[in-house]
Design a protein around this nucleic acid. Structure first.
Lengths: 209, 209
DNA sequence: CCTCCCGTCAGCCGATCGGCTGATGCGAGG
DNA sequence: CCTCGCATCAGCCGATCGGCTGACGGGAGG
């Protein structure tokens, strides 16, 4: 059987990029561009109206609601959102995934990859650009669900009181050297390198009572 | 017209104190002691049954639920609670007020003051013993509601990312000296002296988005 | 007009931190 | 038995922090 074409909605604040994608996708008979949006608001409205199979979403959208918010709104309606953007920072990736993105491609990706990613996204399957995939894996290794040992949580608790190493050591009846050792491991696991950052992450993920 | 007598419930774990109050209040024709309780549980139960105009509550109640908890339960039913206790520590005062106390008197207070405070409490008006009042004022001036300036919140935001002073300075286009100045003031306002403590307090009171 | 608050900046100094390398003891699990 | 994870400890070093003192300009309000 000949499957129906995948209907997609482009969302990028740069007309040039949209035109480029349009031209690129024109060569694929099974991919049909159902519409284009230049802002997050527009994307949300058009997605609701057109009900495309996939929304190609840039994360940088200028003023108004950003790509992450748009992704959140659209994916909440059951439409697959494939993020196509320039940057691959951990923060961007994490926010996009948390917002419900089905895939995350970099614009530097080869066109063929984009096509297959679109077809995959239409079926709800995930495609990640290699750099993104490796970053996601790294997130998983320790950052996603940092498994702190009981002792490390003890130290973290004292740390969140704003205590210095000496005071933490006294409070837990260990040496300052041990406190430093634990702190180093905590930093590793939480992906930070300062006490302030550790406290921020701890509070964020509610690692402390 | 002759207003009805103010009906009050005494709550103190010392029978001697209750007797003293009873004797003291006996001289006031417009104040009627509707009942006495020796524990927090008793106070809550009797308050629900008797529906007095005012509950005279001691904060120290021995075992079981304490005065603060009793105050919380009773004031939740719309009955005015006038705390009458011996101590005037910031912690006690803050907890009692947070629990919904209408007034806070010290037992060292002159009897006349107690009478007028009871009449005031019956109408929902607040009376505070002078030492308590001044403590409350001090709480207000900076400690209770840490009013951080917009700029201080900027610095705090960066701090919560775990950044060092140099990076914060760069991010906000100011010098490290300025960052340090702001940090010092933030520490003062939040009652801490380390960045980790500042982040903890900030997260705790949701000072950051 | 003068004062107070806010934001900016400087320099100094001791205390603390964070990274690194390396070591010991102990219990669980293969 | 031997390895691995966890907790413990040591010393070194450069970087950073936190406290302190002092200063300046601008805006709000008395």
């Amino acid at each position: 059987m000949t499957e129906a074409a995948v209907r997609i909605l482009l969302c990028d604040d740069h007309a040039v990029v949209r035109a480029g994608l349009l031209a690129l996708l024109g060569s694929e008979p099974d991919i049909e561009v159902a519409g284009e949006a230049g802002t997050g608001e527009e994307a949300v409205a058009m997605a609701a109206k057109l009900r495309p199979d996939v929304v190609l979403m840039d994360l940088q959208l200028g003023p108004g609601i950003d790509g992450v918010e748009a992704t959140r709104s659209i994916s909440a309606t059951g439409i697959h959102v494939l993020v196509l953007t320039t940057y691959d920072t951990d923060a961007d990736i994490a926010r996009a995934i948390a917002a419900g993105a089905t895939g995350y491609l970099l614009k530097a990706e080869r066109p063929e990859e984009l096509f297959t990613a679109i077809r995959a996204a239409a079926q709800g399957r995930t495609t990640l650009s290699p750099p993104v995939a490796s970053r996601v894996m790294n997130q998983m290794r320790g950052a996603a669900r940092p498994t702190l040992t009981a002792r490390e949580l003890d130290i973290l608790g004292q740390l969140a009181q704003g205590l210095g190493n000496r005071d933490i050591a006294r409070a837990l009846f260990i040496s300052q050297a041990t406190v430093k050792t634990h702190l180093g491991r905590i930093y590793d696991k939480l992906g930070v390198d300062t006490r302030a950052g550790a406290v921020a992450v701890a509070k964020e993920q509610r690692l402390l009572p």
